[in-house]
Amino acid sequence: MSERLGGRTALITGSTSNIGRAIAEAFAAEGAHVVVSGRNRERGERVAGGIRAAGGWADFVEADLDGGAEASRNLADRAREVLGGRIDILVNNAGVYPAPGTADTDEKTFDVVYGVNVKAPFFLTAAVAPVMAEAGGGTIINLGSWIARLAVPLGALYSSTKGAMETLTRAWSAEFGPRGVRVNAISPGVIQPPSPAGDAPNASELMMKGTPAGTVGTPDAIAHAAVWLASDEAAFVHGTVVDVDGGRTTVAVVAA
């Protein structure tokens, strides 16, 4: 275990599985005390327990971030209590991904997706960033998505929320950066475990054919980028979106 984040505290939303879990595990492996947060207590306790078993420092705080300002404020307060009174790093990772077509999207679905993906991190940041600034600084990392810039046919609702988070990254950097709080984002590409050997490629893997990487990424790839952004190595990085997508959005895809 190294100490790139030694002595720091971190709250990672939506960290009971997938990318959020990988970030929580990577932060803890670098010496941070992490709060694993999500709706499913069983999964959350399992993740926190696994981190502790590996020698890290982790606690689970249950939270259903539906977009209500009070839910976000409550999570910030409980996380600070567990973390000894301060949050040094906030990762806004929690999100939902229903993908109906525009004409098939009802108002309830729209409100749920924007509530979880935009309102919840907005009000959580509002509850965390000013306190970070008063304490001398901190780091906020938002999760965007490659489909915020490279559209897919059924992604209008979800991709617009991720576009909002990338815009908020720049706006919050301007607002809080001068007060010592660095704000950046990661834009993941197609992230999932590869198909077992011998199986036909799935749809996600086919989307990565012809890219520089040539295959899907894993949650660990996003976690490594998050560790860098949270560490002092990225002290001069403000208001940027780091693409971790195997070249999907920046390099022309070559047909196989």
Rank of each mutant, 00 (worst) to 15 (best):
R86N: 12
A126Q: 15
P196V: 13
E175W: 02
D59E: 15
D243L: 10
P130I: 13
V253W: 03
E3W: 10
G44Q: 04
R149G: 10
T211R: 11
L143M: 14
V227R: 02
G189D: 08
G85D: 11
V35K: 00
H224V: 12
F236C: 01
N74A: 15
E107N: 11
Y114T: 02
A69S: 13
E166L: 09
R248A: 14
T139Y: 04
G246D: 05
D106L: 07
L168N: 06
G246T: 06
G246C: 07
A103Y: 05
G44L: 01
A58H: 04
G246V: 04
I222A: 04
A148R: 01
A197P: 07
A174D: 13
G101Q: 09
F110V: 02
P121W: 05
S2T: 14
L5F: 09
I12C: 06
W228H: 14
D243P: 03
V183T: 08
V113Y: 01
A234D: 07
G246M: 07
G163F: 09
A29T: 12
S195M: 15
D232Y: 10
T240A: 15
I23D: 01
G31A: 12
A71E: 13
S173I: 04
G95S: 15
G239D: 11
F60P: 01
W146E: 13
M1G: 14
M207N: 04
E42K: 07
G214D: 11
L124F: 07
D199R: 12
A135Y: 09
I89H: 04
R73W: 10
A29H: 10
V82S: 05
E134N: 10
E134D: 14
T211N: 12
A29E: 15
G180N: 09
E81N: 12
R8A: 07
F176H: 14
G115D: 12
E81M: 09
T9Y: 08
D245W: 00
A54Q: 13
G95E: 09
R182F: 05
G56I: 11
A164C: 06
G247I: 08
R46K: 14
P194N: 05
T102S: 12
T211E: 12
L154S: 13
F236P: 01
V244L: 08
G144T: 01
A69T: 04
A230E: 05
L124P: 06
G56R: 11
V47A: 03
A69F: 04
R149S: 12
A29L: 11
G138F: 08
V251L: 07
R182A: 05
R80M: 14
L124Q: 08
D220C: 01
S160Y: 03
F27C: 02
T215Y: 06
G246R: 05
E81S: 14
A127F: 09
G155M: 09
R46A: 15
V242T: 11
D111G: 01
E25H: 00
G115F: 07
D199E: 15
M207T: 11
G210D: 08
V227H: 01
R41S: 04
G189V: 06
R8P: 02
P178I: 14
H33F: 15
L5H: 10
V82E: 05
A256V: 10
E42A: 14
V36S: 00
E205I: 08
E81H: 13
N74S: 15
A129I: 06
L90V: 01
L65I: 04
G177M: 04
F27A: 00
